[in-house]
Amino acid sequence: MANLTLVYGMRLLPADEITAVGDAPVTLQNGNEAHVTMHVLEGSREQIEAQLRMSIDAFFDFYPEI
């Protein structure tokens, strides 16, 4: 299997200041563009960490071949 790259971003902001979250563009070597869906997790530090772990586990469940 080829080497893979996981593209992600994180930033903590005050929950009441966010009005919209959009996709992040990724430019590929062949000139095509892909998009990364951004996800929002809210709560205390412990809640966010637990949700993030579950999200990562679920993400890799989509790709059982890797």
Score class of each variant (00 low, 15 high):
A2H: 14
N3R: 07
L4P: 00
L4E: 04
T5C: 05
L6N: 01
L6Q: 00
Y8F: 12
Y8Q: 01
M10G: 09
M10R: 09
L12W: 13
L13K: 06
L13W: 07
P14D: 14
D16G: 05
D16E: 14
D16A: 11
D16R: 10
E17S: 15
E17N: 08
I18D: 00
T19S: 15
A20F: 04
D23F: 08
D23M: 13
A24P: 04
P25F: 07
P25E: 10
P25Y: 05
P25R: 10
T27S: 12
L28G: 03
L28K: 11
Q29C: 05
N30L: 00
N32S: 06
E33M: 12
E33N: 09
A34F: 01
H35I: 02
H35W: 08
V36D: 01
V36E: 00
T37S: 09
T37Q: 12
M38F: 04
M38R: 13
H39L: 04
H39G: 00
H39R: 10
L41A: 08
E42S: 14
S44E: 05
R45W: 14
A50D: 13
A50T: 13
Q51P: 01
Q51A: 14
Q51M: 01
L52F: 12
R53D: 13
R53T: 11
R53L: 08
M54I: 09
S55E: 12
S55W: 08
I56S: 02
I56Q: 06
D57R: 14
A58C: 07
A58F: 02
F59Q: 05
F60S: 03
F60A: 01
D61Y: 02
F62M: 07
F62V: 07
Y63H: 10
P64Q: 12
P64W: 03
P64S: 12
E65H: 15
I66Q: 08
I66Y: 07
